[in-house]
Design a protein around this nucleic acid. Structure first.
Lengths: 351, 351
DNA sequence: TAGGGTCCCTAAACCGGTTTGCTAAACCGG
DNA sequence: CCGGTTTAGCAAACCGGTTTAGGGACCCTA
C-alpha cells in the first residue's frame, strides 16, 4: 500500500467532475458565475475528494498572504517568556485578528535577521526594538514591504509608534526625589545588541537620559558606578542589584528599567534582610499585569504596551491597504502609577 | 512621480544581465553550475536592482514553507497574555528556530478555525488544547498536514504530547490532605468551549478526576457546590473564590487548576482579611515562572510547560522530515513543588 | 577527422491556483 | 425568424520562481 497519496489538486477535482479548472475555481470563489447545480456538484466532489485549495498557490496569484510579520532582533524563545512582549503581542494579535490577518513571528534565522525576512511570507511587518541603524530596515524598505517601527524613536519615512520613554523616566526619578531620596541607583536593560552600540538612540538610552536629567536638576550627579546593567528579567534584576550591593553601594532608592528587574531587585533586597519600601524604595517600568500583584505592589511607570501593538497594526494596515499616502507616526504617553514599593527615605539610616 | 514601482522579478534581473532566468536562479541556489565570473556578475546586478526572490513563488515549487503552525482554539489576544502559553511558545520557538523554522500562529478567523487553517502556509501544525472531538483535527489529517496534538490525551494515529494531569492533581490533593485539611474547594478552568461539552476528555476533566479520586480515597465527597469555575486568569481566580465565599463556603484549602487562578484566590482571601497559609492553604497548577515570586511563594504542581513545546516540535519535525513511520507519543511527568502557600489546617477555626 | 567529455548556459515544462477573453447555446422581444 | 442579450463554461495566459533535458563550444584522444 502506497501511503504517499499525492495531494489533491484543482485539476483532479476538475477531471472528476468533468469540468474545467476554471469551473472549479469559480465554484469556490465566484459561484455566481456558474449554474447553481453545477457549482454545488463541484463542491460536493471536492469535499469528497478532500480537496483543499493550496494556500501557497493562491497567494502567488493574489499577491497577498493574509499574514503580518512581527520582527524582533532577539530569539523568540527569550521573547515569549517576557510578559512585556506578551502584552505587546496580544495588542497586535487583537487587531490583526479582527481584520482577518494571521501572525507570523520573524526572528533571526541562524543568526541572520535578513535571511529570516527573506523567507517570511507576509504582507507587512511590525518591527519592535529595531533602531534606525539596523541595516535590516533598509532592506525591508527596498523590498517594498510595508513596515512600521515600534520603539525606534524615528520620524523618518517609515511609519512608527513610540512611547514617551524619557518623560516616563523623569516621572520615576521625580517621584523618588519628592520622597526625599538622594542616593539613587539605576538598573538598566542590557539587550543582546543594545549593549554594544553605545545605544544613544534606543529605549535604554532614552530612559537613562530621563533619569539622569531629572536627577541632575536636583543636583545629583549619577556616576557610572550607580548604574548596573543586566537582562530584563527577574534574575537579571536580582543580579544587577547584587553587584551594586556587593560593590558597597547602599542606595535608598532603585530605578529599574523594567518591572521584571524591579521584582528581581526587591527579592535581592529581601534576601539581604532589608524591607521595601521601609529601607529601600523601588520603581519599575512598563506596568505589566503582574506589577500590581507583587509583594509589595509595584510603583512603576505605566506605558500602554498593548496599545502600542494595536496602534502599530492599525498603522500597518493603513499602508498595506493603500489608504494614506504618507507614513503615520504615533507617540503614546506614559504615566506614573504609585503603589506600595516606594516610600519616604528612612530616618534611622541617617548617614 | 509613480511610486508603484513594480516588484523586481527574476526576469528583470535576467534581462538586465543578459542571461536566462535559469542562470539567475542558479546564481542564487546553485552557483557551482555557473562560471564563477558570471555568477558574481548576476549577483551584483540583482543586488543593485534590489532583487529579492519572492518567497511565495519559491514555496510553490519547493513544496515547503519553512514555517510551523501553532494552532489554538482561543483568540491570540487572550492567549498571549497567559504566561503558561508564553512558556509553551518559548519551548516551541526554541527548537523551531534551531531547526530553521519560523512560527505561524493560527487562531480562529472570524470565529472559524478551519478557515484559518486553510489560509495558513505551514509545513506542519502543533495544536494545543484541541480535544479529539474537534472536527478540525479530522480536517487537518485529511489534508495530509503533519500534526501533533498537545494536551489532548490521545493515543490514536496522530502524534501527541501529554502531561500526567491526573497524577499532578492527585499530588496536590494528597498534599493538603496530609496537612489535615478536610474542607477543600476547587477552582476549575472554564475555557471558551471546554465549558459546553461536558469536557470529560480535556485537561480540566483529567485534573478534576485526580482531585476527586484522591479526596474520595480519604472519604471526602466533593460536592458540586465545592467547585467554582472561571477563566484561567488572576481575575478569574479571584471571582471564582469570591463566589464560593459569598455562597457561604469557608474552606481551609483551595485547589486551583492554574497558578493565575491561585494567585487570584490568594488576593481574594487577603481582601477578606484572612491569611495564606495561616487561615487557608492554596495550591496552584503549572508552576509558571512567577509562582515563586508571589506573596507567599506558591505551592503548586509543576508541569514541564516549556518541555511540552519542545517535545511537540521534535515530534512534528520527525514526521515533516519523513523520519519515523508511526506517530510518536510522549507523556511528561508532573511533580509537586511545595513552597509557602500551604500549611497545616488552622486550630482556632475548629468548627 | 570522428567520437567522447566537459563546461556553461538555455528553452520549456512545471508547481497549483486565478483571471481574462471568448464562444456556443439558450432566451427574448418584435 | 432575426439581431441582441444572458447564461454557462472553457482554453490559455499568468503569478514568479525551480528544474529537467539538452545544445553549442571547446578540448582531448585515437
Amino acid at each position: 500500500m502506497e501511503q504517499i497519496t499525492r495531494r489533491v489538486t484543482i485539476a483532479d477535482v476538475a477531471e472528476r467532475a468533468g469540468v474545467s479548472k476554471t469551473a472549479v475555481s469559480f465554484a469556490f470563489n465566484n459561484p455566481d458565475r456558474l449554474n447553481a447545480g453545477t457549482a454545488s456538484r463541484i463542491l460536493d466532489i471536492a469535499q469528497q475528494l478532500g480537496y483543499r485549495p493550496d494556500p501557497v498557490a493562491r497567494m502567488l496569484t493574489q499577491r497577498k498572504t493574509g499574514a503580518i510579520g512581527v520582527l524582533t532582533p532577539q530569539d523568540l524563545s527569550v521573547i515569549f517568556t517576557n510578559p512585556f512582549f506578551g502584552a505587546f503581542s496580544a495588542g497586535i494579535a487583537g487587531v490583526a485578528e479582527e481584520s482577518g490577518y494571521g501572525l507570523h513571528f520573524i526572528s533571526p534565522l541562524h543568526g541572520s535577521l535578513s535571511r529570516a525576512i527573506n523567507r517570511a511570507t507576509v504582507d507587512g511587518v511590525v518591527a519592535i526594538g529595531l533602531t534606525e541603524d539596523h541595516p535590516e530596515i533598509g532592506e525591508i524598505r527596498r523590498a517594498g514591504l510595508p513596515m512600521v517601527l515600534v520603539d525606534s524613536n524615528t520620524t523618518g519615512e517609515v511609519a512608527s509608534v513610540d512611547v514617551d520613554d524619557e518623560g516616563g523616566a523623569r516621572l520615576a526619578a521625580g517621584h523618588v526625589l519628592e520622597l526625599g531620596h538622594r542616593d539613587v541607583v539605576i538598573l538598566a536593560i542590557d539587550g543582546p545588541r543594545t549593549a554594544s552600540a553605545g545605544d544613544e538612540g534606543g529605549v535604554v538610552g532614552r530612559r537613562l537620559r530621563g533619569y539622569r536629567a531629572t536627577l541632575a536638576e536636583a543636583g545629583i550627579d549619577l556616576a557610572d558606578d550607580g548604574i548596573a546593567v543586566g537582562p530584563a528579567s527577574i534574575a537579571g534584576g536580582r543580579d544587577a542589584f547584587a553587584r551594586l550591593w556587593d560593590g558597597g553601594r547602599r542606595p535608598t532608592a532603585v530605578l529599574a528599567m523594567s518591572d521584571a528587574m524591579a521584582i528581581g531587585a526587591i527579592r535581592a533586597i529581601h534576601d539581604r534582610g532589608r524591607t521595601v519600601p521601609g529601607d529601600i524604595s523601588v520603581v519599575g517600568f512598563d506596568d505589566v499585569d503582574l506589577a500590581e500583584t507583587t509583594d509589595p505592589p509595584l510603583t512603576t511607570v505605566h506605558q500602554p504596551v498593548r496599545g502600542k501593538g494595536e496602534a502599530a497594526v492599525r498603522l500597518l494596515l493603513a499602508v498595506i491597504e493603500g489608504r494614506n499616502a504618507s507614513p503615520g507616526h504615533r507617540r503614546l504617553e506614559t504615566r506614573l502609577v504609585v503603589r506600595s514599593s516606594t516610600g519616604p527615605v528612612p530616618r534611622a539610616t541617617g548617614r
